[in-house]
Design a protein around this nucleic acid. Structure first.
Lengths: 193, 193
DNA sequence: TATAATATTGAATATATATTCAATGAATTG
DNA sequence: CAATTCATTGAATATATATTCAATATTATA
């Protein structure tokens, strides 16, 4: 009955999952379509039946990332320190459970900063700026002493890049012990009692 | 007289420098030999006169990294916290001055963890383990209260990966403000008075 | 069951990029 | 200055990998 349709969706997801895994481990350019196909257990030719090209597959992952994990990360009107604690905890929890979300976080960071990402994807990520709202939040926190003194942009970089570095490492060697999210927050924490 | 020889050395260094720059920005696979040649201002063919292959060029960079920046980073018998403060400060200073050393640090990290690095290079980095001595140092610091409690390996990961994440970012966007090395150390600092 | 639609493969093709090479120009040496 | 060696280029070749496609198997529909 609907078997065909469900099977197709499942197969697409398998491809997306394998692609995500390989893209973050090897990078876009070094990941061969045949690698992905092999990891799924299908011929390379068949992959093109599901996704028109390697770039389309990558693009779909980025689209998922924009809609999901990254979207949920947008700063709110929470107390600044609370936001940073909460976000770090969520990401690290995802990392520990090896979730799709955590890998997606790594993929997005790579796509954003690696010059090798396809041009069209670069375009999709234009205006996807996590630093501006983060800086605003940090300034707010500095005003009430919950965030340490220092260049707010530099603090934002320290926070996100530390998380990114650790997330990438965990994606590479999932068996290694995962740092505590509080340690990251201590990097930017103020010394207000 | 010796002009030829000096010119040759200078040219080799230009290639190494351009290669290092592009490898860390795009990754090994996505960096075209013609990109490197263009950045130096020579034909792609000529590059092969200086380095037999793209891989050989990469290999020479890694060799330089092993001998230089990474070698200097090996833990000593210093006070643990002092070592971490000192190392972070040195790396961040290098980053701020956009030195060869800082880029090399990024290259080495990438070569170590990215599965796409050429196999031979992987081999060269075998046994180049920065974590074992770091863990030992952390345990020593935990014993005298200068390093916080927690899984020593996880603390080592937090420290190195945070530095790596920030270094990579700075390599990508050198105009951004650089975090303070002390912030990183605060991540692992104990609360002994 | 017969027919149509879809999934799958493996081989063929296209494309991108690494690498080679013959030819040319510039520097060095005697 | 003549001869030789080295630097350099641009075009040709080799190689790796993305992509297409005709043929076949499988599943759905009537």
């Amino acid at each position: 009955m609907v078997l065909r349709k469900e099977q197709k969706k499942k197969r697409r997801n398998e491809i997306l999952s394998a692609g995500l895994d390989l893209f973050i481990r090897k990078g876009y350019a070094a990941t061969k379509v045949s690698d992905i196909a092999e990891q799924v257990g299908m011929s390379a030719g068949l992959l093109f039946h599901y996704f028109g090209s390697k770039e389309k597959l990558y693009e779909e992952l980025i689209t998922l990332g924009i809609a999901g994990p990254m979207g949920a990360m947008a700063p709110t009107d929470m107390e600044p320190l609370e936001f940073f604690e909460c976000t770090a905890k969520t990401i690290f929890h995802d990392i520990k459970t090896e979730s799709f979300a955590a890998k997606m976080f790594v993929l997005m960071s790579q796509a954003f900063y690696n010059e090798a990402a396809p041009q069209r994807i670069k375009g999709m990520l234009e205006g996807f700026d996590i630093y501006t709202p983060t800086v605003a939040l940090i300034q707010k926190g500095q005003a009430n002493g919950t965030i340490r003194e220092g260049n707010p942009y530099a603090l934002a970089i320290a926070y996100w890049c530390a998380i990114q570095g650790i997330a990438e490492q965990m994606a590479q060697t999932p068996e290694a012990p995962c740092p505590d999210s509080n340690w990251i927050v201590d990097m930017i924490r103020g010394n207000s009692i």
